[in-house]
C-alpha cells in the first residue's frame, strides 16, 4: 500500500534563480544541497510545514535525461508555461497572495472562490504553473 509522496522534481531553467524564488519568495527551506561534480548539484527544497516532502529543483540540461536537443525543447516548453505542476496550500489565501505579490511573484489568476477551494494561480521563475489554495472551512 502506497502511503505518501516524499520526493518530486520540478524542471527549472536555472537552479540558482529557482533557489532564490522558492526560498526567498515562497518561503521554502533548503532540504539538501549536494554538489555532484562539475556544474552539477542535487538541490531540494521543502514547504516550511512539510519537511518530509522534498521538491527537487531539477535543471534542464543535455545529458542522460535529455538527449539530442530534447533539453532545448523542454526549456521552451517550460518557458511557455506548458506545465501545471501542483497545488500549494496556505492558511490564508488573501494574506499569502498579498505577500507573494509584494515579493514579485507573478499571478495568473487572482484569488477566486472555486468549487474545491479558494484559489489563485501563480508561475515560478521558470514558468511552471501552481495553484495556491486555501481549503474552505466546513
Amino acid at each position: 500500500m502506497i502511503t505518501k509522496l516524499n520526493h518530486v522534481s520540478v524542471f527549472v531553467l536555472n537552479q540558482d534563480s529557482a533557489l532564490d524564488f522558492y526560498v526567498n519568495k515562497l518561503g521554502f527551506k533548503i532540504h539538501t544541497d549536494a554538489p555532484m561534480g562539475p556544474g552539477m548539484r542535487w538541490l531540494t527544497v521543502c514547504p516550511p510545514e512539510q519537511p518530509e516532502l522534498e521538491i527537487s529543483l531539477m535543471p534542464i540540461e543535455d545529458g542522460m535525461m535529455f538527449k539530442d536537443g530534447a533539453a532545448e525543447q523542454m526549456k521552451e516548453l517550460v518557458k511557455k508555461g506548458t506545465f501545471g505542476f501542483g497545488v500549494f496550500e496556505c492558511n490564508d489565501l488573501l494574506a499569502t497572495y498579498e505577500e507573494l505579490k509584494t515579493k514579485g511573484v507573478v499571478f495568473k489568476k487572482e484569488p477566486t472562490k472555486e468549487f474545491y477551494a479558494y484559489e489563485a494561480l501563480f508561475v515560478d521563475d521558470s514558468g511552471n504553473w501552481f495553484s495556491l489554495c486555501e481549503k474552505k472551512k466546513e
Binding site: M36, W42, M64
Partner: peptide
Amino acid sequence: KPLKFIPNCFAETKGW
C-alpha cells in the same frame, strides 16, 4: 556520500 541522500529514480536518470 551524496548518493545516500538521492533516491535512485533521480540518480539513475542523471547518470550519477
